[in-house]
Design a protein around this nucleic acid. Structure first.
Lengths: 201, 201
DNA sequence: CCCCTTGTCTACCATTCGGTAAGTGCCAGG
DNA sequence: CCTGGCACTTACCGAATGGTAGACAAGGGG
């Protein structure tokens, strides 16, 4: 793998777990068996590296969700597809979701950049929710705030390892599957209309 | 206000917004009009300061929730009381909730400490959920995972300012009230049993 | 063969970090 | 009165930080 990509990968992992400020270029370089100056050759500054990681993460996230939605049906099964896709990410690349949390914590300009790049996804999701409400399959609510609630729940269930530990669960692949199941049940009853119009299994 | 308390207050605010690593003792001291060594006089190290802030936050959180539950009834109205209490905190001391997020991000030993101190609250909440399920008022689900889901949603709705901005909302007191309303509707339909056994308004 | 670009290195720099040492003013109490 | 602790200061320190300058090797094209 080319050095530049290796740097991006290691940076994503370290930013997503240790945090941005707690990650030093020296430590990053040492972990890769290169020197800090090699990093600064490919990325003019630490901040530029962060931006590059953000851009990479945005496309990775977008393509992951995009491809999950290709085979998905309509209504509730789309939500299910998205959730499964997110949890697949949580299992295969846990750093990625951690990084998203970290960026939203960092605030502008990093957070602004990421959110801006995810804008199409957000708009699409909000539009979907609104259409489902119009169709009567989902509870009527402010679509974007409903999206925020669902987003918070999903990200939390997938990434809140410390709270999870405090609750007596040890993070593992099995526990991740359990959490996904509980999350789906939670979201299902939170989103769908109470009247048995078309539960769609 | 005594210097020690002023330090704790400023540290809570800075840790909760800028983050722990991004907060330097020098900057903290400068903001208080004192020197860094004065901070190190009251707290032997930066880490000790963090622990003190954690301890303070834990009791503040606990007492806030405790007092909210005193006048609360049973069933759903207890959930409502907790949510209202959290949002009152979000309005009055936004740093506190931000700090909780930050600590859970920092991981052990800081996160372990906070969670340990909040253990009684967690146990009580899980017990409450289980009792409600037994009574049939709430949907049957793994109580602690349901708690994690609800926790994630509440904290997210109260603190995800950047995502909120990306959604087109400007954080304000009014928007906070709106969010609380939407959150309550969301949680209500997520938690309560579908059968109209006793919705309890 | 030469030259220029690409990638990496060694060497260095100014700044900032958390933390130590050694006072200094102040006030209470024997 | 003076001694001792409390709250806080100035003066440092070594390590680590992000970043700069410049050399060196490899390789491709004229």
């Amino acid at each position: 793998m080319p050095t530049k990509e290796r740097i991006l990968d290691a940076a994503l992992a370290s930013f997503g777990t240790r945090g941005y400020e707690a990650t030093s270029l020296d430590a990053l370089a040492a972990g890769l068996g290169i020197t800090k100056q090699s990093i600064l050759y490919h990325f003019v500054s630490k901040e530029a590296l962060l931006e590059a990681v953000i851009d990479d993460s945005a496309v990775e996230l977008a393509t992951a969700l995009e491809s999950a939605l290709i085979g998905a049906g309509a209504g509730w099964s789309r939500v299910e597809a998205v959730v499964r896709s997110v949890f697949r990410l949580a299992a295969r690349r846990p750093q990625l979701l951690g990084f998203v949390r970290e960026v939203s914590r960092l605030g502008p300009p990093a957070a602004t950049r990421l959110m801006h790049e995810l804008d199409p996804l957000v708009a699409r999701a909000a539009g979907f929710l609104e259409a489902e409400m119009d169709a009567g399959t989902m509870r009527r609510q402010e679509p974007r705030l409903l999206l925020l609630a669902a987003y918070s729940t999903v990200i939390g269930m997938a990434t809140e390892v410390e709270v999870l530990r405090a609750l007596g669960f040890e993070p593992s692949l099995r526990s991740l599957v359990t959490r996904r199941g509980e999350l789906l049940a939670f979201l299902r009853s939170a989103l769908l209309s109470p009247e048995p119009s078309s539960p769609l299994a």
